[in-house]
Design a protein around this nucleic acid. Structure first.
Lengths: 228, 228
DNA sequence: CAAATATAATAGTATTACTATCATTATATA
DNA sequence: TATATAATGATAGTAATACTATTATATTTG
């Protein structure tokens, strides 16, 4: 992907960090290396002591940026959804036809992630893998209602709502726009997981993409023929 | 739900337990109370020490039934999917029309769980809540491929495949039967979660059920008109 | 009743997820 | 340039977790 804008910055709820990791070199290293480590060893095995050793810094210094690894995961996920939202808005902005617009939106939301050179300290491809493998754990908790109140999921919710709006614009009579939007976004993560670990449970693979499947699903349930 | 058969027993991979919990009173108490506790406090806060205190037994005794709480969760989930599979097979067994059969299958897979009096030590309603809130955690791990090889997910996979087969029988030309089946089953769990915690992200509620939504989705994407 | 098995009690270990304190180093500004 | 201020590092410590090991005591079964 080409570097479209120099100065785009993903804005994240400041309750998710103690000190803004974008504000220092160490902060950026924490974000950068945590993505590599969580991707490598999984969220359960990952901890701040190991991260400190990896980046040649101290455990206690990392705690000055993030309260705990749960909040770091919420931060990384928010960043990812914010980044996707930006792609979505950018790609669909001046498409007048509602159907073409939705089609483009589904492509953005369900296609395999490519690297974005605008953010040097964040590997979006690995981050998308983290979202596939770990995002559910960030909300499948007993604290979800409080954390939702605190705005930890606003970007994700805004994204689902944007997609829901586009669905409504294609077919105002369709009774389940929000459910379809959440199914597309969550379902895409799930299908990518299945491709890697339970291939018998998905019809997708290297040739047949989740994007194809979800475009077919959306346009048929909306009773609109797919352009592609 | 009425008590249909006295002697049905859900058979679970014996690698999931050290000693069969169905083989003793203590074993059944472990299963029974763990369902209540995990539902109350969430899987993260739950542990064998607390469970031991609750059932007036010793932590070490529980370890003689289950290696760890991860395997207990896999056991409970397998039981749930096995139980659902039984419902599915029973309810669709002698329906000749493929479309009616699929419709009934989607109802079974997506409707709210009711208690089954055949299993006194298992509260299926609470167990279904555990599956909604915790099941993803059982496979979103670094060990998933090995555990899949060891057969820890066979019942779940068999269930998705049964549904996939029924989809094929309705429309043999549909290119994504496995993906649709996995989307319906995983998506139903997700929609129930959204109803409870992110109501703006779903079109379902007390009146509009996930079953309605998924029946509409399936039959439209298969280009078959819904009977209901 | 004896032998085998199941369960309970207690103790102990390595790891995790932090918190607290103090020392050192970098940076900002007067 | 001196110095205050902030950022980071080093070390230590704590409570809880997720077990394992050992021994004692019930309970079941032959």
């Amino acid at each position: 992907m080409e570097k479209l804008l120099q100065s785009v910055r993903i804005t994240i709820n400041d309750k998710l960090y103690v000190k803004d990791p974008e504000s220092s070199k160490l902060g950026k290293r924490i974000v950068e290396e945590s993505i590599l480590m969580i991707n490598d060893m999984g969220f359960e095995s990952f901890n701040f002591k190991k991260l400190g050793q990896k980046i040649g810094s101290n455990e206690s210094s990392i705690y000055r940026y993030f309260e705990n690894k749960h909040k770091l995961l919420l931060y990384l996920a928010s960043w990812y959804w914010g980044w996707l939202e930006y792609q979505l808005v950018f790609a669909t902005n001046n498409i007048p036809d509602a159907s073409t617009k939705l089609e483009r939106a589904i492509e953005i939301m369900t296609q395999a992630t490519e690297i974005d050179l605008a953010f040097t300290h964040i590997n979006e491809v690995l981050l998308s893998k983290i979202v596939i493998n770990e995002y559910s754990k960030s909300y499948l908790t007993k604290e979800v209602d409080q954390e939702n109140k605190d705005g930890y999921f606003v970007i994700y919710k805004r994204l689902v709502n944007r997609l829901s709006q586009m669905i409504k614009e294609v077919n105002g009579d369709y009774p389940y726009p929000a459910s379809l939007a959440s199914t597309l976004i969550e379902g895409a993560l799930h299908q990518y997981f299945l491709i890697d670990h339970f291939s018998s449970l998905t019809s997708c693979d290297a040739k047949t993409t989740p994007t194809e499947y979800f475009k077919h699903l959306a346009f048929n349930t909306l009773n609109i023929k797919n352009n592609g």
